[in-house]
């Protein structure tokens, strides 16, 4: 009775539902990436601050976030935030957790990108009497961005592949949809396989996209705004 066979009719029936859920997955990834980039920059800049205490605390915060599981961080935010009277939707919680987790990873990428800028560039900026904000905006970041693209892209793809964990707080993304379909129909083969294939396709496309972005990016950097 158990289906060694692949049920095409069932596949076509559930495919649109999974595609609808894919929108949620992609939305979480997109918002999570934006938040992660912002958090990554914040961490990276704080680690360059003049205060030694601040630098060391940020180091351990980043280390802590990176070496504990995303799933537990998701649960932490989901269960503990309401204790402080902050209640967020599963999507907002998920985006927050993804952003924080990957922000910690990205801060290392940004930090080494910024460190990769020659000392002479900083000195020239100082000689021109640029403010610290202008130095970053006009001199440092434009040169640092291109080398950071591949690593940043890889972390965003990694984040995308961790979005199924948001099903644990009932966010109706692809995996959660597949699980619901599977338990209602007693047939997991097609929905789970479909989701797996979609992840494979999306992440291969994304890897190709990042490669293209990097290739097109002017080697000499570009000026912001």
């Amino acid at each position: 009775m158990n289906g060694f066979h692949w049920d095409w009719a069932f596949t076509w029936e559930v495919f649109p539902m999974i595609l609808t859920a894919a929108k949620v997955t992609l939305l979480a990834t997109l918002l999570g990436s934006i938040f992660a980039i912002v958090m990554g920059l914040v961490f990276a800049l704080l680690r360059r601050s003049n205060s030694r205490t601040l630098r060391i605390s940020i180091y351990w915060v980043v280390e802590f976030i990176r070496s504990t599981p995303l799933l537990v961080q998701i649960f932490f935010l989901y269960y503990v935030m309401p204790e402080f009277g902050i209640s967020m939707s599963p999507l907002a919680t998920g985006v927050f957790a993804l952003g924080l987790h990957y922000g910690a990873y990205l801060s290392e990428v940004f930090r080494s990108g910024i460190d990769g800028i020659e000392k002479g560039q900083w000195e020239a900026a100082r000689a021109l009497n640029l403010t610290i904000v202008d130095t970053y905006k006009d001199i440092v970041l434009p040169q640092a961005i291109r080398p950071m693209i591949p690593a940043t892209g890889n972390y965003i793809i990694a984040m995308f592949k961790e979005t199924p964990q948001l099903s644990a707080i009932t966010l109706l993304e692809m995996l959660q949809m597949a699980k619901i379909i599977g338990s209602e129909n007693f047939r997991y083969l097609e929905p789970f396989t479909l989701v797996g294939i979609l992840y494979l396709v999306f992440s291969l496309l994304a890897a190709y996209g990042i490669h293209q972005v990097e290739r097109r990016f002017p080697k000499e950097g570009f000026s912001l705004k």
């Binding site: 592949k161 961790e162 979005t163 199924p164 099903s167 597949a178 997991y188 789970f192 989701v195």
Partner: peptide
């Protein structure tokens, strides 16, 4: 290319 949780579910449920 796919994610760990999906692999886990696939092995366990499929």
């Amino acid at each position: 290319g796919t994610s760990a949780l999906i692999q886990l579910y696939w092995i366990y449920f499929v």
